[in-house]
Simulated assay, not measured.
Amino acid sequence: MNNAGEQLISDVVGYISELVPIHVEEVKSKLSAITARYHIQRIKEDETHPDLHEKIDFFLASKKLEGLSQITLDGYRRELGIFAGKVKKRAKDISAADIRVYLGSLNGIKMSTIGRKLSALKSFFSWLAGEEIIQRDPTAKLKPPKTEKRLPKALGIEELEMLREGCQTVRQRAFIEMLYATGCRLSEVHQLNRDSINFQAMSTNVIGKGNKEREVYLPFKAIYHMKKYLSTREDDCKALFVTERKPYRRLTKRGIQCEIKRIAKNVGLESRVSPHVMRHTFATLTLNNGAELVAVQELLGHSSPDTTLRYARITEERKREQHKKFLVQ
Rank of each mutant, 00 (worst) to 15 (best):
M1D: 05
Q7N: 12
L8Q: 09
D11H: 06
V12G: 03
V12A: 08
V12E: 02
G14P: 12
V24R: 04
E25W: 04
V27D: 02
K28T: 01
L31I: 14
S32M: 09
A33D: 13
I34H: 13
A36V: 04
R37L: 13
I40S: 01
I40T: 14
Q41R: 14
R42W: 05
K44S: 10
E47M: 08
D51E: 10
D57R: 10
F58V: 00
A61I: 03
A61M: 10
K63N: 11
K63T: 12
K64G: 13
E66H: 12
I71E: 09
I71V: 07
L73Y: 12
D74H: 10
G75S: 15
Y76W: 10
L80G: 08
L80V: 08
F83I: 06
G85K: 11
K88W: 11
K92F: 12
K92P: 00
S95D: 08
R100S: 00
L103V: 07
S105C: 09
L106P: 05
N107P: 00
G108S: 15
I109P: 05
I114S: 01
G115A: 14
L118G: 02
L118T: 05
S119E: 08
A120R: 04
L121Y: 15
L121H: 08
S126P: 01
L128E: 10
E131L: 10
I133A: 06
Q135K: 08
D137Q: 07
D137V: 06
K141R: 13
P145I: 11
K146N: 11
K149F: 03
K149R: 15
R150L: 15
R150Y: 15
G156N: 14
E165Y: 05
E165S: 14
F175K: 03
M178Y: 01
A181T: 00
G183L: 11
G183N: 08
R185F: 05
L186P: 10
L186I: 05
E188S: 05
V189K: 02
H190S: 10
I197K: 01
R214T: 08
L218W: 09
I223H: 03
H225S: 06
E234Q: 15
E234R: 12
D235P: 14
K238W: 10
A239D: 07
E244F: 03
E244N: 13
R245D: 06
T252S: 15
K253I: 03
Q257H: 15
C258K: 14
I260T: 09
K261M: 02
I263L: 03
A264Y: 14
N266W: 04
N266I: 02
G268K: 02
S271Y: 03
S274M: 04
V277S: 06
M278Q: 03
R279K: 12
T281V: 12
F282R: 04
T284N: 03
T284G: 04
L287P: 14
N289I: 01
E292L: 09
L293W: 05
L293R: 12
L300A: 03
L300V: 06
G301W: 05
H302A: 09
S303W: 02
P305R: 06
D306F: 12
L309C: 00
R313C: 06
R313F: 04
E317L: 09
K319F: 11
R320T: 03
E321F: 07
F326S: 05
L327T: 01
